[in-house]
Amino acid sequence: MTIALLNFPSDLLGEVFKLCNPFELYLMSKCSKRARRSVTLGGTRHWKISYYESKNIWVRCGEDEYLFKHTTNPHELYKTEIYPFASSGLSMFLDISDSGDPNLFTYLLDTFKITIVDFLDNDEQNMVFFRQLARIVIDRNMEIERVILNDTMNTKDVMDFMPLIHEMNITRKFSCFQAFPPNFQHQLTQYPNKIYISQSF
């Protein structure tokens, strides 16, 4: 059965989109420019975005979690499955680059009109990609609720990254587990509700 969805009036489209999850909206947005515009205009849910690992991007709304996952297997493409480590999470495989895909990140921000970053975490120590994401959220003046800087083997990389932390609008928590040289000083200009600095001696 088929239905000419884009011929619906926009309020009705919005009603349908409210019942779709981010995967369905993402795939629809990929159908055409007009379809993407409809998704952007019709979307009313307040999604947040998170990045933990270079291969994966989370989109959340309340308790609902959706993970855009990397795959190179064409048979897995667009397949969805329950994400085993989330209470109510679903994941979908996409052919995103395994070294991180800033294009997917900005595509999701634009398509779903996301203005809040839930979580940024340099979990896989890919500081190049992490730096790209940081620049994107800073340039868009986005609110970032939580940032975690994990201890990497490359202190210099993280030290180089720190000026970006100072530019970020972190509102809830900043956690830093990186061991810096003794003469290093954090120079935060904005203060989230919680700051956790490990190995500060």
Binding site: M1, T2, A4, L5, L27, M28, C31, S32, A35, T80
Partner: peptide
Amino acid sequence: VKGKSPEEIREIWMIP
């Protein structure tokens, strides 16, 4: 469109 690919979605929802 649950579980469908973009091509299938295009067909089902008649997206030009």
